[in-house]
Amino acid sequence: MNNSALIDLEIKFLLEGVYQVYGYDFKNYSEASLRRRLLHWLSSSDFDTLSQAQSQLLRDRDLFETLLQGITVTVSEMFRDASFFKAIREQVVPYLKTYPFVKIWHAGCATGEEAYSMAILLLEEGMQGRFRIYATDINEAVIRSAQEGIYPLKDLQNFTRNYQRSGGSGSFSDYYTARYDYAILSPSLRENIVFAAHNLTADAAFGEMNLILCRNVMIYFKTALKDQVLELFDSSLVAGGFLCVGTKESLDNRKISGRYEELTPRAQIYRKRYA
């Protein structure tokens, strides 16, 4: 057996062990990215091989947490894909405004950039007091970071540009305070967001959502897990509700696709049909 095949075998054993001991199921994650992340973690550890690391990983929760960080942390931007947020503002918000109150689930919110973006957008559209965003992620450490709403100042130029291109109607600098090398988002934005840990592969549905965003999360999942998670979203979404996936994702060939219509070509916003 060559080294590459051995590594694949070690990964398989490790993922099974992690599932049995900690309940995190990475067995249906796409291999290529997971393999890169695991080997990156390994190279920064004191272990030579994953099988050597496994013994300790399965016994030492703190060590496992470092691995979990390594394989689940994702990065995002405020108003990432400006055209998507523009489409939300122009084509989805008019529907949302017809409800007295809307619930939004942002699944896989990472460090919160897009959840805060959505809050800004809805406030600018006059929905103050009429919405709540449930922002969840598998990774409890990034949830804590998301709650703080503090981002490196160097990223703000890009965030501001995205905001402007997304049709932002205010001045982006009104939403944060710069301090040293960081920008602290206005605490009032957080009042509209509930951050919580949630594992898409294992935890239950959220009820009666009007809008679910899960962008660039399912690209890490194999087909069966994609379908499983989409069923979870489908059961969490009201009829006429909206499901948003990443720019390069689609519901084509997915089991739930017949229950949805595409709202805007290329923006990857789908609407759940009535019955």
Partner: peptide, 21 residues
């Protein structure tokens, strides 16, 4: 490769994308 995504190959010889750093 699409803009802003990594392009990868999976063992089953399909393409995959990621937003890894």
């Amino acid at each position: 490769s699409p803009a802003n995504y990594h392009l990868m190959i999976e063992q089953n010889r399909t393409l995959s994308l990621s937003v890894d750093p």
